[in-house]
Write a protein that binds this DNA or RNA. Structure first.
Lengths: 348, 348
DNA sequence: CTGAAAGCGCTTACAG
DNA sequence: CTGAAAGCGCTTACAG
């Protein structure tokens, strides 16, 4: 390799059109050692005011920024965290992602984003994650045992968002899906509903599984019959499900429990606009999440609002702690959602 | 420094609990040179099948992944692109971000996400961007002249998303906001509307400025009076704006042109549910974007649908090209949106 | 407090 | 095709 050490370059060649300014350039302009420059950019390093002044001036003149890649290589800290999210089109995730990004930034961490099109993509994504030597992972996706083991083997801190592994010792932040559904179902029962449909999300969604489980458990322990239909979290599928629910000549239902708000909205639109039914007089509909559309006048959903901001706070804090010391005891933080008493079901 | 070259470690120490496996570890296990290992992970490098076999086997045994940080340091390519987005809560951006991420992944690029809380954050964000030696930038935010110059000076390819700098030579992908608004307004005029309100987004949004400008231009050239009110893209503000529009004892309006879909939805809810008006019989409402809620049965917006997928394709392709060769001629690609003939305004 | 030097884990001419 | 070696731009003991 013919590349010259930057410190030996002529001043004219310093800003060489590729705009790469190194600590050697700054050092030679400031008349100090490269180590001194490095120390000036390390918080808490011991450096005299005189040298600091010279270095800062030179750095400003040259537009120097330390190379985070080189820094990461030597220090073993990339200051990058991977955020692995299943599906951004779920209306709740953009808010989560935005908050994660802002809060990690406050800790000097940057978010490298990985989205999954299929669950099976996790392996492919983890390969990338290892390559980038991330300091930690926030995952809103389902991991296999082998994938959990890989994170453990590589000593990469991992915090799950909105899913819990009951049989594994992994850190996680979660909304209490089961409790939320129980509260909704119990409220519906108190309000006199007695014929239920439970609309779940896609089968591979752990969040949907937990919510559906919560709803069905509450119904079972009350001895109430129900029908369960699998949806996919989408508005469109909810409309189709309403059609099939009403087409059946079986007993009429008067409460629909949806695994998320968007499906609840789809149900309401189909019930009201296509079938001419009244919500909640003829039939109650409840959702889960507390997306912004849930409070739109036309829907005014009864739903469980996830405490997104607090959950994200917790996830960020847990991951940052684990980056500092990997062997912290595992913790699972489960947040209760807040009931939103809307007009799509009259609960007290 | 007391660290030993990994190749000299005893086999037992290889996987040392920090899970760091280097190309030296693979090389010594495979009985080849470190260079050979490196070549096996470089697409298109010349390597014999025999060595490749040995290396791949050893790499698999050790769970080796090349360190992208070290690779980036030496090659000058981080394979990271920065995506700078103003506000993820704008309903259209999650879709954009998700598609950007998927499509960059197909080109081996990873997305480092930067969200802005204020426009003034761009400087802070760019500092981070420089530190991470990103290969390129996609920006859905407003840059100052100095910020544009900084990207130029550092030879960092930059593609703007949904904004154009008429007075600068910068690559960009944009929806034709002005044309879209013109089509909407002309349609409304043909349908007999003659008293308009134009609801714009926040003053610092270039997208809003372009859309508002387009609407007002079309109205002016038709000689039609209008009122302009500044909103903030939100549902809530739109409701308030409707109140103030109807409270005025001035001439009644019969068409509201909103700078985005969410405000159009807010207007409709307020008009219908609070003021008991009929849309579109009493008043027409149009939006812009084509978010999923625009096609919800209850709103069925007349709006302009941005060709998000094509626009993202274009942005990714443009940036990738510019990463390959920085000095490509600047290009601005402007996509026409597609009119959605909904029920919130009866255009033909 | 300061500087010289080793080393992080790779890629890439270079010589064979 | 293959290996030895230099070097990417930093951080960090170490000795002064």
């Amino acid at each position: 390799m013919e590349q010259k050490n930057k410190a030996e370059r002529s001043p004219a060649a310093r800003n060489d059109g590729r705009g790469k300014v190194t600590s050697y350039d700054v050092a030679s302009l400031a008349g100090v050692s490269q180590s001194a420059v490095s120390r000036c950019f390390k918080p808490g390093a011991s450096i005299s005011a005189k040298i600091r002044g010279k270095v800062e001036k030179a750095a400003r003149q040259l537009g120097y920024q330390p190379n985070a890649i080189a820094r990461g290589l030597i220090s073993g800290r990339s200051n990058i965290v991977a955020v692995i999210i299943n599906n951004l089109t779920n209306l709740i995730y953009p808010e989560v992602l935005s908050e994660l990004n802002q809060k990690f930034a406050q800790h000097g961490q940057h978010v490298l984003l990985f989205t999954l099109s299929r669950e099976s993509d996790v392996d492919r994504v983890l390969d990338q994650v290892w390559q980038y030597q991330v300091d930690g992972i926030v995952a809103a996706a389902q991991f296999t045992d082998a994938q959990l083991a890989a994170c453990e083997a590589r000593c990469t801190p991992l915090v799950f968002y909105n899913r819990i592994y009951p049989n594994h010792s992994v850190a996680s932040v979660c909304c209490d899906h089961e409790e939320g559904e129980r509260l909704l179902v119990e409220g519906l029962l108190r309000s006199g509903r007695e014929s239920f449909a439970v609309v779940s999300g896609p089968a591979d969604s752990a969040v949907s599984t937990a919510r559906t489980h919560g709803a069905i458990n509450a119904l079972k322990s009350a001895g109430i019959p129900y029908r369960q239909i699998e949806g996919d979290y989408s508005y469109e599928c909810a409309k189709g499900i309403v059609n099939s629910l009403l087409a059946k000549d079986s007993r009429k239902i008067n409460a629909i429990v949806c695994a998320n708000d968007v499906m609840a909205i789809g149900c309401i639109d189909q019930l009201v606009h296509v079938h001419g039914m009244r919500v909640p007089e003829d039939i109650s509909v409840v959702g889960f999440d507390g997306v912004s559309a849930a409070s739109w006048e036309n829907y005014n959903l009864t739903t469980i609002v996830q405490p997104v901001s607090r959950m994200v706070d917790a996830a960020v804090q847990m991951l940052i702690e684990r980056i500092e010391s990997f062997d912290l005891p595992v913790e699972k933080r489960i947040f209760s959602g807040k009931m939103r008493f809307g007009a799509s079901a009259s609960l007290r």
